[in-house]
Design a protein around this nucleic acid. Structure first.
Lengths: 168, 168
DNA sequence: CTCACTGCAAATAGTTTGCATGCAA
DNA sequence: TTGCATGCAAACTATTTGCAGTGAG
């Protein structure tokens, strides 16, 4: 299913995503409201992993106030139509990310400073299908999260406590 | 509310885990209380993924009432000393599992019926180290979760809605 | 005897929901 | 016009925390 390796289109991407979103709404007979466009716009123009609060803040600093309930409702909508991905990095809240095409990536999460590094490993696609078919499972999505210390935090830790790695 | 049980650990395993737990507590000058032993016991004797509520229920049906706050405090303690693993299967609450040795396994999660299937893939170990070293990252733990439909739910879905797979 | 643990209840925090009102179609 | 969408606030739910009392070492 994900046989096409696709890189993120650089420009105009947000605009394309917006029209896909509008089309999805119309297809489902749902109104295209200003709030929905505002929330989706913020997400599509950003490349990071945004929390509901991040989105609220960006909307505010742009003058576009949208109620938090609506932000959550819109994010869930985006996830449902497949235009956004939900992430849980164990921070006690969720983060959302625009989902451009079928391109899959996974994450390294620093448990010390919270940095999130994306990585791509096509082998994971194969492995996912293999494991799934072994159990008659129909895979829809996956999350691969590797927790640990980023290069900087690792160095810092090794400096303070030279043999911490022995515990791993 | 009960999780699916998978493989059965060797006998006496729970007892061994308990004494490791007691040792950890003593090492940190922490009292070995009845409540701590009760909570740890439930977790060590089970092979599944238990929520805090599951544990409360099992304690109750055994006559051993323990306050929920204490259950949470003990679970966090177990995670901190490395004797339990925390899982988040996107159910809105966490599940805990005894951690026997360094054996790694990952999960297939049915988004329809909630079944959790464990799988082992040694290649993931390699992949984890490769990716990590590529970014100078020091991996500590990982979570690989493949969401989708288990064989039964997939069949049921295909029966009701013959071409749902086209949407994937 | 002392200090940390326990239970309870109240507090948190992210997210969801009920309801009167406001817009998109 | 006709519904859904919105905003607010209240509701929810899992988890954490404060505090008076209890128990392990």
């Amino acid at each position: 299913m994900d046989s096409t390796l696709q890189t993120r289109p650089p420009l105009g991407c947000a605009a394309v995503m917006m029209s896909v979103f509008r089309a999805s709404l119309q297809e489902h007979q749902l109104p295209v409201t200003q709030q929905r466009e505002a929330v989706a716009g913020i997400l599509f123009e950003s490349t990071g992993h945004l929390s509901a609060d991040d989105i609220a803040a960006r909307l505010k600093e742009r003058g576009d106030h949208v109620g938090k309930a609506t932000i959550y409702r819109t994010l869930n909508l985006l996830v449902d139509v497949g235009l956004a991905t939900e992430h849980d990095f164990d921070e006690g809240f969720k983060r959302y990310e625009a989902r451009i095409g079928p391109s899959r990536h996974d994450h390294l999460i620093c448990t010390s400073c919270g940095e999130v590094i994306e990585f791509h490993r096509p082998e994971l696609e194969t492995l996912q299908s293999e494991v799934a078919s072994e159990y008659g499972f129909q895979p829809i999505t996956r999350q691969v999260k590797i927790y640990g210390l980023c290069a900087e935090c690792d160095a810092a830790e090794a400096r303070e406590n030279p043999d911490y790695r022995r515990a791993l």
